[in-house]
Design a protein around this nucleic acid. Structure first.
Ligand SMILES: [Mn+2]
Ligand SMILES: [Mn+2]
Ligand SMILES: [Zn+2]
Ligand SMILES: [Zn+2]
Lengths: 136, 136
DNA sequence: TTTATATTTGTAATCATTACATTTATGTTT
DNA sequence: AAACATAAATGTAATGATTACAAATATAAA
């Protein structure tokens, strides 16, 4: 499904050289759709790559985002989260367990009033509350 | 329009004692619909109240938000912004000038797919891009 | 092999936010 | 009014995510 070649190719197509670190980071995002923080990614990958630096994770994710390979989520203060799923979708963060869920919404029917001549580059729909697991 | 009595009354109705600092902070939010940061509010009010502490601004805004008097916006990393306008509306932040614009949207027609049994307590619709002034 | 360039790494700095102890204000009881 | 109790505000130190920066390493070109 996500072979090393395919991952490297995707990175290349975004105009980024596919180094070992970059491949591993992008692979992690593709295989784990959990909207991880930098810290989480670092702690998972440092097992594979003992020399990995957290700065590299920061730089790489920022580069990926700039090149449009991934998106970032600002759903809570003091943490940026990353997502390799680029189709339009919303996010729900559970106040209790902290898990972030994807959901779809009828974005085609969404209408903004009073934004004539605004150049919209990014749309973020974030919900908060409690998830079914925590509602028991 | 926003007399000191009215402001104090609103604060009281939220279950908060209307101290001088709390009145001034809430008054600032009501009269300046600019989604300010803690730092901005502090710098504006410290002229009026020379003894004001930034911690007080933090604590007060957090208390206001907990009691439902205001809402907070997480539209960008490393800053929380506050808004006394509590009707449902979205926010657009200009990447160039940093200004945050309110806008309305057809929230009644918004449909979420895959969120059965989720308890939604907060909805945030954040857009980014460039505003008309910066598009010249 | 040299040389240049790109990438990674480790450490220190930054900056918004929070923790916490102290001070000040407010309200109540004697 | 004085003493006491409680709430609120203040100032400083600590926290923690992110960034800056210089050195080290890897990759590519000459
Ligand atoms: Mn997602
Ligand atoms: Mn607003
Ligand atoms: Zn949950
Ligand atoms: Zn602008």
């Amino acid at each position: 499904m996500f072979s090393a070649q395919n991952i490297g190719k995707k990175i290349s197509e975004a105009g980024i050289k596919p180094s070992l670190q970059r491949i591993k980071i992008y692979e992690f995002l593709l295989k784990n759709n959990i909207h991880p923080t930098v810290d989480f990614i670092y702690n998972q990958l440092v097992n594979d790559i003992p020399t990995l630096s957290k700065t590299t994770v920061y730089n790489t994710l920022k580069l990926f985002e700039k090149q449009g390979l991934i998106i970032n989520l600002i759903i809570d203060e003091n943490e940026i989260r990353y997502d390799a799923m680029k189709n339009i979708h919303g996010h729900f963060k559970c106040d209790k367990c902290g898990k972030i869920y994807d959901f779809e919404y009828n974005h085609m029917q969404l209408e903004f009033l009073g934004l004539n001549h605004f150049n919209i580059l990014k749309t973020e729909l974030n919900l908060k509350g409690t998830c079914p697991e925590c509602n028991q």
